[in-house]
Nucleic acid binder design. Sequence first.
DNA 1: TTTCATTTGCTACGCTTGTAACAATGATCG
DNA 2: CGATCATTGTTACAAGCGTAGCAAATGAAA
Lengths: 137, 137
Amino acid sequence: MSGPEAPRISDAESQVMAVVWDGADAGRGGAGAEEILGSAGAANGWSETTVRTLIHRLMRKGVLASERRGGMALYTPKVSRDAWVTAESQGFLDRLFGGQLSTLVAHLARQRTMSPEDVARLRRLVADLDAEAAEED
Amino acid sequence: MSGPEAPRISDAESQVMAVVWDGADAGRGGAGAEEILGSAGAANGWSETTVRTLIHRLMRKGVLASERRGGMALYTPKVSRDAWVTAESQGFLDRLFGGQLSTLVAHLARQRTMSPEDVARLRRLVADLDAEAAEED
DNA sequence: TTTCATTTGCTACGCTTGTAACAATGATCG
DNA sequence: CGATCATTGTTACAAGCGTAGCAAATGAAA
């Protein structure tokens, strides 16, 4: 059941992956260097070489691949965003809240750190969850 | 409004803090080296000197203090666990879910990664939140 | 085809982290 | 009061990360 031991993706690296995943979701298969630079690079004030290093390491870690497409390279994800987000969330919940989402929610509720909109969305989600559970699909 | 720029606490270090916080919650003001070793140390298979290093760094970062109490030292927390947990949670939500708890919940719901008990607790919490909001305290 | 500019990939350097050995300090007992 | 032992605090070192400069490869131009 345990996956192939996903390599750790650092904080900065994950921002590069975010751009690549966005490109893939948009049907472009991934993202080019220019796109990554203009998005994650500009947002963090990274130099171009810094972005290149992050890309290089992600490729060495096996979570990113480069396809040569007419001079320029298209970087494509080798791991799904959903899988990564799930693993990262599970790890976080395990470390801080004994793996229970409800404990996190209880904490944030006590600290009054949720916006009313967020709470409203949360209520709707839980209602949907209940409905789903009720019709036992 | 911005706090005093809390220093970053590493993963291993936070496990030491957890023991100290537990000791404080239990009315003992903190925890001694022996307690930290037997709890976090044993759980991770750390050598005694490794634990000493973590304690040392936490003290240098200003989040832990040592009180000499008859030969042995009692380590006491300088930052509240609630404040740290909140900051850590907010950072996590910001990085992965645009700061919105509901987006995390939606993701976990879609991945079917919550236990039924967790979902039940969640439903009760949201109901309480609504009640609180209704009486507009 | 040789040269030049662009784009990619590799190497480096300082700092943090995980891990642990060594030094200093304080209590204890003859 | 000095030797010994427990306890604490400091230093070290390898691996990883954030940051960036330099080299190699690849397409375009002459």
